[in-house]
Amino acid sequence: ELSWTAEAEKMLGKVPFFVRKKVRKNTDNYAREIGEPVVTADVFRKAKEHLG
């Protein structure tokens, strides 16, 4: 699991709890794919757009 900024964690907190774990995993995987060592708010937004 990658490191997350406080802002990205806050955004994740707005995701319904029953899918939060999956969203975190998918976002981590997306960040790795694009070469990001940390999940930022920008990476979170891009993952959301990319993953739907």
Rank of each mutant, 00 (worst) to 15 (best):
H50Q: 09
A47Q: 03
N29H: 10
N26V: 13
R32S: 05
K22E: 13
K22S: 12
L51D: 06
V15K: 03
K46G: 07
D42A: 08
V38M: 10
G52L: 14
R32P: 00
K46E: 10
E36D: 04
A6M: 10
F17D: 10
G52P: 08
P37T: 14
H50V: 11
D28P: 00
Y30I: 03
K25F: 12
K10N: 09
G35Q: 05
Y30S: 01
R24L: 04
F44W: 05
V39M: 02
L2P: 08
K14G: 06
P16A: 05
E1A: 12
V39Y: 00
S3M: 14
V15H: 07
G13M: 15
T5I: 02
A8N: 00
K25S: 10
E1Q: 12
G52N: 13
V38E: 07
A31D: 01
K21P: 12
G35V: 03
A31K: 00
K48W: 15
R20L: 04
E49N: 10
H50E: 06
K21T: 12
R24W: 04
A47G: 04
P16D: 06
K25G: 07
V19M: 15
L51N: 09
L12G: 01
K48S: 14
T27V: 15
P16S: 05
D28A: 07
K25P: 01
T27L: 07
E33L: 12
K48N: 15
A6R: 08
K46T: 06
E9I: 14
R32N: 06
K14I: 06
P37K: 14
Y30R: 02
A31N: 00
A6N: 09
K14F: 08
K10G: 09
T5Q: 03
L12N: 01
K21E: 15
R24I: 04
R45M: 13
N26C: 14
A47W: 10
R20Q: 08
R20T: 03
M11C: 07
V23C: 07
Y30H: 03
E7L: 06
G13W: 09
R24P: 00
P16G: 04
T40K: 02
L2I: 13
F17V: 11
T40C: 03
T40I: 01
M11N: 04
L2G: 04
A6D: 13
N26G: 09
D28W: 02
K10R: 13
V39I: 09
A6W: 09
T5G: 02
P37Q: 11
F17Y: 12
P37W: 11
K10C: 13
V15D: 04
W4E: 00
L51Q: 09
E7K: 07
A47L: 05
S3A: 13
V23R: 04
A41C: 07
R24Q: 07
N29R: 13
